[in-house]
Design a protein around this nucleic acid. Structure first.
Lengths: 235, 235
DNA sequence: TATTTTAAATTGTTTTATGAATCTAAATAT
DNA sequence: ATATTTAGATTCATAAAACAATTTAAAATA
């Protein structure tokens, strides 16, 4: 194979920020790094891109390998290429963020590598520039979720409106008026009301809803108004 | 220097989609590739990341080198990592998009590499996956410009509202009501009215405006309503 | 068992802000 | 004067924000 002469070649890595929601707070999945440098330190789900795979494929493979998780929402975030971000050797890392339902994947979660969920508010220091990656991922999720219905990816297929509202309040660290939230969400036409209720959270019980997948895919790229006063938010 | 054993290393490239506006249509800057493979074919501004520079630095260097242009708006777009995207050798490319005022840089434009402006509607076929990069860049610009005032980067420091409107109409390939557009834009508080007029485009002449840089930076990250009916647009 | 209490879910109305559409007026080269 | 384009103002329609009362069903109590 003919090659480009005299060019430098770098390690290509992938780091995944995995977000989950336990019904109360937004969490992030971390593992203890298995090799030097920084072996044993808490880190994102990461790994190296192999010869025969694309970066997208690598991110999926690494997630599957480290967590057992498969088929979740996964989106490329940003590529970090500072020459000294990894002290061992020049490594370019492409960060991805993933959104999953913690409970759904609770059983599937492969514990070989001991991944653990941490609240975003009290998580350990991360290695290299991974703290920066997490900050960017949080911003991106907040940004995108204001316009697109990505937060449904964090909920089980059947959920209640109060659960959904609690999720939005958690992501934006704010409180939202019940009546307006319900109106806003129902107006999107994304929800299908179910016949039965979730009675775990209250005496009266809240109706379950499911995503209307057809509308979900059709409207996913459109601008929806999912949070109040987006104009006043700085992202 | 200790190294990660047994890992593959790849060429890291940068490709820049440079957008310009000539007052009429949106254009893109291309050059004829200077080396094999695909030597002589039209291509994006591209090059390889060097040992001692970050990817961001590389994109700036390469733009400066190929075009003479400096200090323009430049933003990372996406990283393309298909194993076979470059037939010569595995190359990962991070795409950036740039926005510049064609006229401002007309004189600065370095012609050593013969860069040329092409209308987005009739541009040559590009090499590798660069067509995909351009499509993504167009989408990203449309997306971002609906909420953030990035299109000002395409205009000279002094511009008229009709010029600005023509730019928006060109980017969104639509026509906008003059009066409403003017109201919408003035409501952002981003514009400072000048005392003099541009009389080149009309009998009456249109007042020049300049960006209020303080408000520009303060509001850049906020959600602004810069185009009509964003809700109905699919991005 | 009947009644009351309680906590949460659900629904509706008024007010305000915003955006779209239309009309009106002003400026100026021909 | 006239044609053309900018610029400001008004009306109308729609959407969002603010705000309160009712329903539900389990649990507690008489």
């Amino acid at each position: 194979m003919i090659k480009y002469a005299k060019q430098s070649r770098f390690i290509q890595a992938v780091d995944c920020i995995v977000f989950g929601f336990d019904g109360d707070t937004l969490k992030i999945l971390l593992i203890q790094r298995g090799f030097e440098p920084e072996k044993g330190k808490w880190s994102l789900m990461g790994g190296f891109v192999q010869e025969n795979e694309s970066i997208d494929q690598a991110s999926n493979r690494i997630l599957k390998q480290l967590t057992g998780l498969d088929g979740m929402y996964l989106e490329q975030l940003h590529t970090f290429g500072d020459p000294h971000r990894d002290p061992m050797e020049r490594t370019v890392s492409t960060a991805y963020f993933a959104l999953i339902d913690i409970l759904k994947y609770e059983k599937q979660l492969n514990t070989d590598y001991h991944p653990e969920w941490f609240s975003l508010k009290r998580m350990p220091k991360l290695i290299f520039d991974q703290q920066e990656m997490v900050e960017l991922a949080k911003r991106r999720v907040r940004y995108k979720a204001a316009l697109h219905p990505i937060l449904f990816e964090l909920l089980p297929s059947r959920f209640t409106i109060p659960q959904l509202q609690s999720l939005y309040e958690s992501v934006y660290n704010t409180s939202i008026d019940k009546r307006n939230f319900s109106k806003r969400i129902l107006a999107t036409g994304l929800l299908i009301k179910q016949a039965d209720k979730d009675k775990s959270g209250s005496r009266r019980g809240a109706f379950y809803y499911q995503l209307n997948m057809q509308n979900y895919y059709a409207k996913f790229q459109a601008f929806l108004n999912l949070i109040p006063n987006p104009t006043n938010l700085i992202f």
